[in-house]
Simulated scan of single mutants.
Amino acid sequence: MTNLQLDTLTDNALSLWRAHGRETPLSGVFVACSEQPKGPVHSVYQPSLCAVLQGEKVSRVGVRTYRYDAGKCLITSLEVPVRAEITSATEKQPYVALVVNIDPAVVAELLLEYMCTQDESETASEALCVHPLSDDLVDPLNRLLELASRPVDIPVLAPMINRELIWQLLKGPQRHMLRQVGLTDGKLARIGKSIAWVRENFTQPLSVPHLATLAGMSTATFHRQFKAATAMTPMQFQKSLRLQEARRLLLSESADVAQVGFAIGYESPSQFSREYRRMFGTPPGRDGNKMRSSIMLESQI
Score class of each variant (00 low, 15 high):
S240N: 08
K187F: 12
Q244W: 06
H210Y: 11
L183R: 14
A231S: 15
A231I: 05
V257F: 00
K239N: 11
V198H: 07
V260G: 00
L250Y: 04
A212T: 04
T221V: 13
E200T: 05
G182S: 05
G265Y: 11
A196D: 10
P209K: 14
F262E: 13
K193T: 15
P234T: 09
A212M: 02
L250R: 00
H223I: 07
R190T: 13
Q174R: 06
M235H: 12
K187D: 14
T233N: 09
R179N: 08
Q238W: 09
A212N: 07
A246G: 02
T184Y: 14
Q204C: 01
A246Q: 02
L251P: 01
S207C: 09
E267V: 06
G182K: 04
P209I: 08
T221F: 15
V260K: 01
Q225F: 11
A231D: 12
P205S: 07
S207E: 14
T233K: 10
I195T: 14
N201Y: 04
L188T: 13
T203M: 01
G186K: 00
G216R: 03
S240Q: 09
D185K: 04
K193E: 14
A255W: 02
R242A: 00
I195E: 11
R224Q: 12
T230A: 10
A228R: 13
E253A: 06
I191D: 14
H176Q: 12
T221Y: 11
Q236N: 11
A263K: 08
G261P: 00
